[in-house]
Computed example of a mutant assay.
Amino acid sequence: MTSSIGTERKGTVESSPVGWSEDGFGVVVDAFASTITDDGRTGGQLSVWVGGRQVVDVHGGVADFRIGKRFTADTLVPFFSCSKGVATLLVAMLVERGLIPSFETPVSEIWPEFGANGKASLSIGDALAHRGGVSAPRKDLTQEQVLDGVTLANVLAAQEPLWEPGTNHSYHALTHGVFTQQLVERASGVPFSRFLRDHLTGPLQADVFFGLSDDQLPRLSHWVDEEAEPSQFSNAVPDADPEAVTWHERAMTLGGGIGIPDFNRPEVFRHLLAGVGGVGTASGLARIWSSTVVETLGRRTISDETVEVLRALRSSGPGRFPVGPPPYQSWGAGVMVPSDWQRYLTPRSFGHDGAGGQIAFADPEHGVAVGYLANLMGGWDRGNRILSALKTALSI
């Protein structure tokens, strides 16, 4: 049985959740409710799918405090690095269709220009696991160059790597999306957003977008970060190695061309940034991840064999440019896998988190998928509370 939760009231701003859940998932809804502040500034959405069916779909709080706009089920939320997981699934689909030979195929076989300066042997799987040696550009880029869809790719292709590709890792915060965009567009022969729509989001009726049209912009939420510095986004600690700090900050801003505050400018989302610029609903993300482990809305996105290739560990630990203390993240081929940073549900879970505390992943052992989106930056404990409650509901 299903239970309705809360009510929508025109002209008011509610912090309590609205939506529905199946019986037995009340503890999950309660955990989600605990993540919504009562200050009238932020909110979020949660969607849980089990066995290819949605069992929780709730939202609450404020989507844009500047105009008093509430969260609804249709609010679009920037999900930052959750984008990397979705973009990686497109690459996986192309591998399954034979348009990309395998994850061990060199990037340069699909994107020949990238082979310059000793990068020719880097495999696709290692590139997607942040082992590509091009986590940041050596030259400064303007925002126009970052967003034009061409300049950054050309710069990375020609660049001497920051370390020998494949031998170490460092988070390719923004440049990861260059790999996925180039691989998808060159292998499929169509624009990234069209392949996404035609082969993933369209069939699943998933509200997930890379590049927003003008008519979608009013659905966009406004994120809040009370402690954000206006000029940069960095989690570096004071005693971190100066070289590591430099390259970490360049990875986060591409030499100053873009910073995390820019993602509150709706016009940025008109452009394709495949590693960090995705927006969508929690239900849209969750149904995508559900389709990777079980038939969902009549679709199975990738096979069990491909799931195992994706989630096989490739990168873990502090990496080439550590700037903070543990815990550290771990990655397979473009997806985050369980670590001390994020344990998800079981050791077989895989997906990707986002800088706003967002979580999107699937668990093949239990046929579960979760999408949690919020517009309050950081605060990883919020998602962990939800996952702890979900484990209780599922008796895991």
Rank of each mutant, 00 (worst) to 15 (best):
V27I: 15
L90D: 06
G367Q: 05
V184C: 05
G255W: 06
I302A: 10
V335A: 02
S213R: 15
S316W: 12
D23H: 15
Q143H: 00
W380E: 14
R197T: 14
V323G: 07
F210R: 01
L90H: 09
D207P: 00
G26R: 08
Y171F: 10
R320K: 15
A389M: 06
Q145D: 04
E308M: 12
F192Y: 13
R299F: 09
R385P: 00
L204I: 02
G256Y: 04
V268F: 04
V146G: 01
V50S: 08
G149D: 01
T253I: 10
L156T: 04
T253H: 10
N264S: 15
S283P: 00
G40H: 12
A127K: 05
S316Y: 13
I100W: 03
K391Q: 14
V27P: 06
T346V: 13
R197P: 00
D38Y: 01
R348L: 14
V27C: 15
W341H: 15
P338T: 11
G351S: 12
A120V: 09
T292Y: 07
H169F: 12
E113D: 15
P165G: 09
G367R: 03
T37S: 15
P364R: 07
V268I: 15
V276W: 09
T35K: 03
A374L: 12
S83E: 07
D30G: 14
T301E: 00
G118E: 11
V62P: 02
R97S: 15
P347Y: 14
Q182T: 00
M377V: 12
G317L: 04
D214G: 01
K119D: 11
K84M: 07
R348W: 05
W289N: 04
V27N: 12
P238S: 13
R131W: 00
T35M: 12
E96Y: 03
S193T: 11
G202R: 04
T142M: 00
V224M: 08
P106T: 06
Q145C: 01
S121V: 08
G26A: 14
D57M: 02
F32L: 11
R250C: 04
N154M: 04
